[in-house]
Simulated assay, not measured.
Amino acid sequence: MVVSASEGFGFVASAGPTLVWLIVLSFVFIECAVILGLFLPGDSMLITAGIILANHASGTGHVWALSVGAIIAAVCGNQVGYAIGHRSGNHILARKGGKYLNYTNLHRVNILLERHGFWAVLVARWIPWVRTLCPLVAGAARMNHTRYTVASSIGAVLWAPVLLLIGFYAGGFLNQVPWLMPAVVTILVALLLIGTALGAWHYRQEMARPVEDVTVEEVLD
C-alpha cells in the first residue's frame, strides 16, 4: 500500500499541536541534560515543529507559547546537566574510540570554557554536540553557577524561539502553494524519525565502548 504525501501530512496534522509540544519539550530537555542528547536532531526538530504549527489555525499562539516552553525546558535541562557534572566531581567519563564522547571533544569544550567562560556557554547553544557536553563539563569544572545560569538562559532565549519561528514563518510561505506543504512536512518528519532512530543506535554504540575516566585537569593539558 502506497501512502501519498497528502495522506502522510494528514496524519501528522491530525496529531495536533499537543504531539508537537510533547516532542519539542522532550527533545530540548534531553539535548541539554544528558548524553543521549548528543545524538538527537534538535535543531531540525525545532524548525520542523514550527512548520507543522504554521498549518494550524491557532498556530501563531501555539508557536509563541511553545517558544516559552522550549526556553524553560532548555534552562531546566542545562541545570540538570550542570548538576550531573558537578556531582561527578572533576571526573568526566569519556569513551575510548568514541565518536562524540571522547577525550578530544571534552578537551575542546573544556578549553572553550576555560578561555571564554560566559561567552562560551552562550555560543555553545548553537553547536549541537557542544550544547550537550557544555553543561556537564561546566559542572565538573566547577564553573561559577550564577554566571553559567545567566549565560545558558540567555542562550536558550536566543536559540529555541529563533528556530521555531524560522520554521513557522517558512511554513507560512509553504502554505501559499497547496501541494508544497504536505510534501515538505512529510519529508521533514520522515528525516526526523530516521535521524532519531540513527541517533539512538549511535548512542547505544557509543555507550558500549570502554569507559575512559579522565579529570578536568587532564583534558586541559
Score class of each variant (00 low, 15 high):
V3Q: 04
V3L: 02
A5V: 09
G8H: 12
V12M: 07
P17A: 08
L19M: 15
I23T: 14
I23L: 06
V28P: 11
F29R: 10
I30A: 10
I35T: 08
I35L: 07
L38A: 12
G42W: 02
H56Y: 15
T60P: 10
G61F: 05
G61T: 12
W64K: 04
L66A: 13
G69A: 09
A70T: 04
A73P: 00
Q79P: 07
G81I: 11
G81S: 03
Y82V: 06
R87H: 15
S88V: 10
H91W: 13
H91S: 14
A94S: 09
A94G: 06
L101H: 15
N102G: 13
R108C: 13
R108E: 07
V123C: 03
W129A: 15
C134K: 11
L136W: 05
R142M: 07
M143Q: 03
T146W: 08
R147L: 14
S153E: 11
G155I: 08
A156E: 09
A156D: 00
L158W: 04
A160G: 00
L163P: 04
L164K: 08
L164R: 10
L165D: 00
G167D: 13
Y169E: 08
G171W: 01
L174F: 09
Q176N: 01
P182C: 03
A183L: 12
V184Q: 02
T186Y: 00
V189L: 09
L191W: 01
L192I: 08
G195Y: 05
G199F: 00
Q205C: 10
P210V: 03
T215L: 13
V216R: 06
E218Y: 11
